[in-house]
Amino acid sequence: MVGKNMFRRTLLAFFIVTVAFSLAVPSMAFAQDYPRKPITAIVAFNPGGGTDVAARVILKFAEKYIGGQFVVENKPGAGGAVGFTAIAMAPKDGYTIGMINPPTVLLKPIQEGNLVKYSLSDFEPIANFVSDPGALVVPPDSPFKTMMDVVEAAKAKPNTIRMGYGGPGTSEALTLRNFENAFGIKVRKVPFEGTGPQLTALMGKNIDVMFTNASEIVSQYKAKTVRVIAVGAPKRIPMMPDVLTYKESGFDTIQLAMRGLAAPKGIDPKHLQILSDAMAKVFNDPDFQKRADELSLPLDYMGPAEYKKLLQELDAFYRAEYAKNPW
């Protein structure tokens, strides 16, 4: 480190840094029309995951309708909170949007308020793409044929039915709590990380019932290696037409894991209009519908107004439940 070259080196390093900085000044492009450059779509999860795949497929189709390009940027971390924050804090020029996953996106600020610095009001919803209903699943040879069978069994022998779920703090945990409260029952709650281990435990008869999402077990459902006894959608889903909803089974709850697109609050309404129009057209594209079917994506299109209203309702619901008692 000591030497006569020190000065020259410092100078050179300084030179490099200066040049680089001057290059780093963002290029100024004034949009006459929108979009004039690729739109970045932030995905708060790793490539290859469910949200990433859904985003890439949908945005690929949307390019045709918007006459521009989308670039997916993965920003994983903190169970999605890092990416959601990035969307909320993104420039409002319409060139950064992102995928939001209710209820996770709503739960993070409620549960991790001191860490997560965004809230629902920082987003401008564009469209919902997918609503993946919760599902109550049993092994194929289980004595439980309906949700009420589970409830009856739990009433007969409290604290014996072993029920797998996503662990404390997840929206499943809330559904499970409300399930117990609605029928005055108590089950053994076994936490799991991810559907894989949970499914293994179910098929190996280590648990009796599990709460998961329908799209995660659709292949097992088709192969009849599991039986789905109820789904958490408002009405029956095309993917599993013979399965009753929670409500039909007597449990008045809706449990959906959604994936949609949002922009940061304050985006130009014209840009929002262009984006949401393009998304609406994607959903009417038969090629897209075919592709979504192949991917087992439970499509559920909602426009900006409808989506926003639903998100606000959900947010209020979760905040109220959390105020009652964290789950």
Binding site: L12, A13, F21, A24
Partner: peptide
């Protein structure tokens, strides 16, 4: 610095 200068510039400076 990598967030500002980008990968190529920062890496070259680092190696240098």
């Amino acid at each position: 610095l990598i967030g500002f200068l980008g990968f190529i510039t920062t890496s070259a400076a680092f190696l240098f």
